[in-house]
């Protein structure tokens, strides 16, 4: 985790918080944003750290993975703010904070990105040097190394962020 936060700080010049090392992450973020963010973008999805209960429920297929990241989003967005979910979630969840979102007029948007119509414009931005996404590539491997590539990426070994395979 820390190496990725370091990367974020260095390349994106953002403030970072390690949720595992922050005593009360929701409260910390509320204070840092003076009462909540205008927009919270959830790039985590079901892979957030699961509670013991969620582990059991997910194994029994009663829960689509962790709801931890979304719950944090719900707690740190301001009233009338927007939560945008990009991280992928499972199909169904118990204990979804429905009323909590409703009573604070929070707008939730989500889904699979429609990427095709963004490609020409983003290609131009790369060509003119406005965007350079290559800094996240940490591993370049031959496709025959895929089993190892998946393992490294999954375990976050070797400070892995993104793997590119070459056939």
């Amino acid at each position: 985790m820390d190496y990725r936060l370091e990367h974020a700080k260095r390349t994106n010049h953002v403030e970072t918080y390690n949720f595992e090392k922050t005593h009360d992450i929701d409260q910390t973020l509320l204070e840092a944003t003076k009462g909540g963010a205008d927009v919270v973008i959830d790039c985590v999805g079901l892979d957030a750290k699961r509670t013991a209960m969620e582990k059991v429920e997910t194994a029994l297929m009663l829960q689509g993975g962790s709801l931890g990241a979304f719950n944090t989003a719900a707690n740190v967005v301001r009233k009338f703010g927007t939560i945008q979910v990009i991280g992928v979630y499972g199909l169904k969840y118990n204990m979804f904070p429905f009323g909590h979102l409703f009573e604070r007029n929070v707008q939730v948007k989500m889904g699979q990105a429609p990427v095709i119509h963004y490609m020409p414009e983003l290609f131009r931005q790369i060509q003119t040097g406005k965007i350079d996404p290559t800094d996240i590539i940490t591993h370049r491997l031959h496709i025959s190394d895929a089993p190892r590539a998946y393992e490294i990426f999954d375990n976050k070994d070797e400070s892995c962020i993104k793997v590119v395979l070459k056939p």
Binding site: H7, A8, I136, I161
Partner: peptide, 12 residues
């Protein structure tokens, strides 16, 4: 003010 949750490739 924007909070990004997650520091994987998409978060970054």
């Amino acid at each position: 003010t924007v909070i990004i949750l997650g520091c994987g490739p998409v978060g970054l």
